[in-house]
């Protein structure tokens, strides 16, 4: 080891990119090797399978009840937040829980780089698990008419929604050790019940952002009074992402290991 002193110096600027990629690759490898990812993949295929069966049965196209059930309730209300919650809380939360995160935290790496690498994985996997499924299901059901607007709206809407969910739940995992439970309460109670009853709460509902963006692209030029308008939904999505990312970086900078029992 004594002859290794020269290697202790930080590498050139090119090494900075590789740190983020190294962390992202490690995180993705760890997550995709877990059984829960396989279950989520099966869950993600569910809307496609149901849409296919519905279409085979002769229903679906232009049937508002069916498209609402699959695109809204199954994909946007159920699949999207679950996937965002699982990946958002697992990318760092699982490593903090099993202790492997310490090997990341005792390295000379700016905390924002760690957060960025983790978010790339959480957001990327969330989009990968939901948006293609939403696209195919919308295409099969011909949501929004015979064109591709419904499928494109589903992809963009779920991609934005996945980004916001994953980022917010990632930040939550750095704020509390009960991120999964609190995230579920947010999805089920806040978005599932309260946002439907109290109009003001919609501005704080990721599901509402997703629905508004999806609808605006699917039905261009048509205003839906029950939904936020597109600019508001996009701005609120960006605000939520930025605030969550800032909180995550601040929390990670001040992260302290659990009480040692020596």
């Amino acid at each position: 080891m004594s002859g290794q002193a020269a290697t202790g110096a930080p590498a050139a600027a090119s090494g900075r990119r590789s740190v983020i990629l190294t962390i992202a690759a490690l995180t993705a490898r760890g997550l995709l090797g877990r059984r829960r990812s396989l279950l989520l993949a099966l869950l993600a295929l569910l809307p496609v399978g149901i849409a296919f069966l519905v279409r085979l049965s002769g229903r679906g196209t232009g049937d508002e009840t069916v498209t609402t059930a699959i695109m809204d309730r199954l994909i946007v209300t159920t699949l999207l937040p679950i996937v965002g919650l699982v990946f958002g809380t697992a990318v760092l939360g699982a490593e903090l829980e099993d202790g492997t995160a310490i090997f990341l935290l005792i390295k000379p790496i700016d905390r924002w780089r760690i957060v960025l690498a983790k978010l790339i994985v959480a957001v990327g996997l969330s989009i990968a698990f939901v948006s293609p499924s939403a696209f195919v299901a919308a295409a099969i059901l011909q949501v929004g008419g015979p064109g591709w607007s419904g499928a494109v709206g589903a992809v963009v809407g779920t991609a934005v929604g996945a980004t916001v969910y994953a980022t917010v739940f990632f930040a939550l995992s750095l704020v509390t050790g009960r991120a999964l439970a609190i995230g579920l309460i947010y999805v089920l109670v806040w978005e599932g019940v309260l946002a439907g009853l109290l109009e003001g709460i919609r501005a704080l509902s990721i599901r509402q952002y997703t629905l508004a963006i999806t609808d605006a692209i699917t039905h261009p030029g048509v205003t839906n009074p029950d939904l936020l308008d597109l600019p508001t939904a996009l701005i609120l999505s960006c605000v939520a992402i930025v605030i969550a990312a800032v909180i995550a970086v601040r929390r990670l900078r001040s992260f302290q290991i659990g009480q040692a029992d020596d």
């Binding site: 290697t7 090494g15 590789s18 740190v19 490898r29 760890g30 492997t100 090997f103 790496i109």
Partner: peptide, 22 residues
């Protein structure tokens, strides 16, 4: 704990990369 899916070499290599060694 150490990432159980990594080999011993990969774990050391990971630490070296995170230290930005050339």
């Amino acid at each position: 704990s150490v990432h159980s899916f990594l080999t011993g070499f990969e774990f050391a290599q990971l630490n070296a990369r995170l230290q930005r060694l050339p």
